[in-house]
Design a protein around this nucleic acid. Structure first.
Length: 631
DNA sequence: ATAGGGTTAG
């Protein structure tokens, strides 16, 4: 036994024999811990409840390399009279672990004693309630609620906030509201945490409106209040609101954004493609000592790639010291949506070399990369590797990629066969991928079949009608066009309105088709006329084949000319200097005519233009596009 | 001694 290590603690505690126990903080290895434990047993000091408690505390609450819950439990079981402190320690440790049921066992054990020594106290209940919350055990949770009333602990902020949270997590939101309202009566008010739990609770049940109401009403707001609300907006697709609240937080200055704030706001920045704000977030982290670890790093990489700056994403990725599977997924997906398939595959290899196994999400991104680059055989072999080598079961998302991959490459029959072969019923995403491929390759036979299936599922979704109508139009089958449009009207189907937006000086400007609401509308339309004239001079003829209304060519041309992405590009041209890359985001896929037009604009105006559509990026430069017209 | 907020995906 290594007595030199024990020496210092022996002398330190010599004057307090009753509380004497070795200092576990200096414990470096498991072996060392066992030695200390053995010494305690040998000297009989293990019978000192304080010494045993300290040992349990060390085993249970240390960080991973030292934590050993089973060991802690063994020591506990050997205590002749476990004290309240040890019970609490273990209950807490297990409620934080992946075995929270153990907390409930211990708590039951503890309440069976019910003597003066081991009566549960205000330190016991938060953890027990947390365990119930994790397990979703409402019945047990209610029993615990009864007990905490019995012990008169319903005036403690820690207990109450966990009680409310337990009800939220168990899906009993009404009970949570009742518990919260009762808590307001007692004088734990001013407890920010209690309000935060409610804000988070409303977010979890999807009621962002009431979450905001709580947020506005609460007497004080901590950084967590802001974070909950910002991430609540972002998680429910209210990206503009998320960014606005983030700005308000900075304006108000009462609390500073922290690590979690940045991680929470970045998905909203990504979705909106707001590169300037995203760069600012990155800069803020650097200036305020917020550590860019694998989590924040992943969010930043995703932000850079979704904001069109894939080079910055790669640069950040390569400089990151800490990478987890999500970090790798973020960069691979970024490269995939930018059409840089070779690099995506290269990072996929590097990921495995670095010892991180691909997850099912990784495969979605890798297959997307193959799909956007037309690497059909590569995609097929990767799909096989996923199943055979990595033993992953393909999900509907993977089939979606494969159907897209085959269909886009024109192998429509194989795509349809694969779709019918999968176990799950094809959902609308798979069907739409196949329908899109049919439209691209003019396969009306499979197209009709797929559209019919989609319409059976949801006759009010306009997308299948539009695709069908387009296909008929390109075959000049005007009866088909009429019938489809009639059917669409009868079913009151609606199509998603297309819109595009662009960030200029940190502000987002949004446009719909033929938009005239912008303050600079006159200048925008002058620019559009100028573009039209320049294009005419170089001999460009608008591609009206996608306009499926029967109207004369002049009207078709004007309908095309006012597509939202063209308006956004025109606005970009008049609002930024020539060196600035114009970055436009569109909610739907870009149309053929806009694609051709923007290619020419990039040459005629010597501008780099980046357009993100629903599925991928198009980098336009000097008359050509990075997608090589394959999308 | 204790509580509340976070990243990737067809």
């Amino acid at each position: 036994m290594n007595s030199t290590v024990l020496q210092p603690t022996t002398t330190t505690h010599a004057s307090h024999p009753s509380t004497f126990f070795p200092d576990f903080k200096h414990c470096k290895t498991k072996q060392h811990l066992t030695q200390l434990h053995a010494k305690l047993i040998k000297t009989g000091r293990i019978r000192d409840p304080l010494a045993a408690a300290e040992l349990i505390r060390f085993c249970a609450l240390s960080n991973p390399p030292h934590q050993d819950l089973q060991y802690a439990l063994q020591v506990f079981d050997q205590m002749p009279q476990p004290n309240c402190f040890s019970f609490n320690t273990l209950i807490r440790a297990f409620s934080d672990s992946n075995d929270p049921l153990q907390s409930l066992f211990l708590f039951t054990h503890m309440t069976q004693y019910d003597d003066v020594l081991v009566k549960p106290n205000k330190y016991t209940f938060p953890s027990v309630l947390k365990a119930c919350a994790k397990l979703g055990c409402l019945k047990q949770g209610k029993q615990v609620h009864g007990l905490l009333l019995k012990y008169g602990l319903d005036n403690d902020g820690f207990v109450l906030s966990n009680l409310v949270r337990m009800y939220v997590m168990c899906g009993a939101f009404n009970d949570a509201v009742v518990a919260f309202d009762l808590s307001k009566m007692s004088d734990v008010m001013g407890e920010v945490v209690l309000w935060n739990v409610m804000v988070d609770g409303y977010v979890r049940v999807g009621d962002v409106g009431n979450a905001r109401k709580m947020f506005d009403e609460m007497p004080q707001r901590s950084v967590v209040s802001w974070n909950s609300m910002i991430s609540g907006y972002a998680q429910h697709g209210l990206f503009v609101e998320a960014l606005e609240l983030f700005r308000e937080m900075q304006r108000e200055c009462s609390v500073a954004p922290n690590y979690v704030t940045l991680v929470s706001v970045l998905p909203a920045v990504s979705r909106l493609g707001a590169l300037e704000i995203g760069r600012w977030v990155h800069f803020y982290a650097g200036r305020n000592g917020v550590k860019v670890d694998s989590v924040l790093g992943s969010a930043l990489i995703d932000m850079y790639s979704k904001c069109g700056s894939i080079d910055e994403a790669v640069q950040l990725f390569d400089s990151l010291l800490e990478k987890n599977v999500i970090t790798w997924n973020s960069i691979i997906n970024g490269l995939a949506i930018h059409g840089r398939a070779d690099e995506a595959l290269c990072y996929f290899e590097k990921m495995q070399e670095s010892g991180i196994s691909p997850s099912d999400v990784t495969y979605i991104s890798v297959l997307t990369a193959c799909s956007h680059a037309g690497l059909v055989d590569k995609g097929l072999s990767i799909f096989n590797k996923m199943v055979q080598t990595d033993g992953l079961t393909p999900r509907i998302e993977h089939y979606g990629c494969m159907v897209d991959l085959l269909g886009r490459a024109g192998r429509l029959q194989e795509a349809e066969e694969l779709m019918l072969k999968m176990l799950d019923e094809p959902d609308d995403v798979v069907l739409k991928a196949l329908l899109g491929a049919c439209k691209k390759h003019g396969n009306i036979e499979i197209g009709e079949r797929v559209a019919k299936r989609l319409l059976e599922k949801d006759p009010e979704d306009g997308a299948p009608y539009v695709a069908l109508s387009n296909m008929y139009a390109s075959l000049a089958d005007w009866d088909g066009v009429m019938d489809t449009r009639l059917m669409m009207r009868q079913n009151e189907a609606k199509k998603d309105p297309g819109c595009s937006w662009i960030e200029v000086n940190g502000a987002i400007h949004e446009f719909v088709v033929a938009d005239e609401s912008h303050a600079k509308t006159n200048y925008i339309y002058m620019m559009l006329d100028e573009i039209k004239e320049k294009l005419r001079l170089v001999g460009y003829k608008p591609d009206t084949s996608q306009v499926h209304l029967r109207m004369d060519d002049r009207d078709k041309e004007s309908a095309l000319q006012h597509h939202s992405e063209k308006i956004a590009v025109a606005f970009g041209l008049i609002s930024t200097t020539r060196e600035t890359t114009i970055r436009v985001v569109k909610n739907l896929r870009i149309c053929d005519d806009c694609h051709s037009t923007i290619k020419l604009v990039s040459r005629l105006y010597r501008r780099r233009i980046v357009v993100r559509d629903r599925k991928r990026f198009h980098h336009f430069e000097n008359g050509s596009c990075s997608c090589m017209d394959y999308w």
